[in-house]
């Protein structure tokens, strides 16, 4: 397995936030994780990214233990819920950030950023500052900035949570295309049922700090805990009432 997470525990003030966390994920796959607010999703991702220390457990990436390595050296990128861009940098420089800090030559950076801007369908916006583009465009820039560094693992923390339905749909399509183009391995956290089903090669459900990974889509749908059955029933009932 490419990503192996074994028995991760995390508590704040003796309250367990994440417990017995185990994940196994193959390379170039996306595990979507459904969970309500406050269930420990963000803490889980930040621990894997190295931004929050773990109390115990082991994280391995491609067979190498990374839980004792600092965040900047893990090659794991954490993408925030908000479209968090560096406010002092243009769209171009935001995307180039990860390459600039690796001191890659300017002409290579330029070529790769221009290519990424095309992939993100942001042509003509390169010189704009973050406050001059829309929320959806900012989230695309954040995506591009994360992907261009070619991270071993991408952690997406409800990345489309703040977008309207139309933009969200476009972003989902964009992510699926980029994930395929750039062979991304990722954990995709969301509180949206449909999004969880659409985005993941595998699906998991998190509740009160515990993660349950389903062996296939139907077992996820048939588990009453996930809420899919209740949701389906709601729409069925609505349709019956109407006709």
């Amino acid at each position: 397995m490419f990503l192996e997470v074994h028995d991760i525990e995390k508590s704040y003030n003796k309250e367990a936030i994440v417990s017995e966390l185990n994940i196994n994920l193959e390379k170039h796959k996306t595990l979507s994780i459904l969970g309500r607010s406050g269930c420990g999703k963000t803490t889980m991702l930040k621990m894997i990214a190295g931004l929050t220390p773990i109390d115990q457990g082991v994280i391995k990436l491609d067979g190498v233990r990374v839980d004792e390595i600092e965040a900047s050296k893990r090659n794991i990128v954490y993408l925030y819920q908000e479209d968090l861009l560096f406010p002092h940098l243009s769209v171009f420089e935001n995307i180039a950030f990860g390459l600039r800090i690796k001191k890659i030559k300017d002409h290579i950076v330029d070529d790769r950023v221009i290519e990424m801007i095309e992939n993100l369908e942001l042509q003509g916006h390169g010189s704009k500052m973050p406050h001059q583009i829309s929320g959806g465009q900012r989230q695309r820039v954040a995506f591009g900035r994360a992907i261009i560094t070619n991270p071993a693992l991408l952690l997406l923390d409800e990345p489309f949570g703040s977008l309207d339905a139309g933009t969200r749909k476009n972003m989902q399509t964009l992510f699926l295309r980029l994930a395929k183009t750039f062979n991304i391995t990722s954990l995709f956290v969301t509180h949206d049922l449909k999004e969880a089903i659409l985005m993941g090669d595998e699906i998991a459900y998190m509740d009160k700090g515990k993660l349950k990974i389903y062996k296939d889509r139907s077992s996820f749908i048939n588990d009453p805990e996930t809420g899919v059955l209740a949701e389906t029933e709601f729409w069925k009932q609505l349709k019956t009432e109407q006709f």
Binding site: A49, G50, L51, E70, A71, S72, K73, N75, I76, V77, Y78, Y80, E82, L84, F86, P87, H88, F97, G98, R100, I101, K102, R145, A146, T149
Partner: peptide, 30 residues
């Protein structure tokens, strides 16, 4: 939101000094 921006910079591979010189200082001084 500099605490989040510095976390983000670290996640993108920036060292502590790169985070200070390329993110914290420019954002504050600007």
């Amino acid at each position: 939101r500099l605490d989040q921006l510095t976390e983000l910079a670290r996640s993108l591979g920036a060292s502590n000094s790169q985070t200070i010189w390329r993110v914290s200082l420019p954002v504050i001084l600007r």
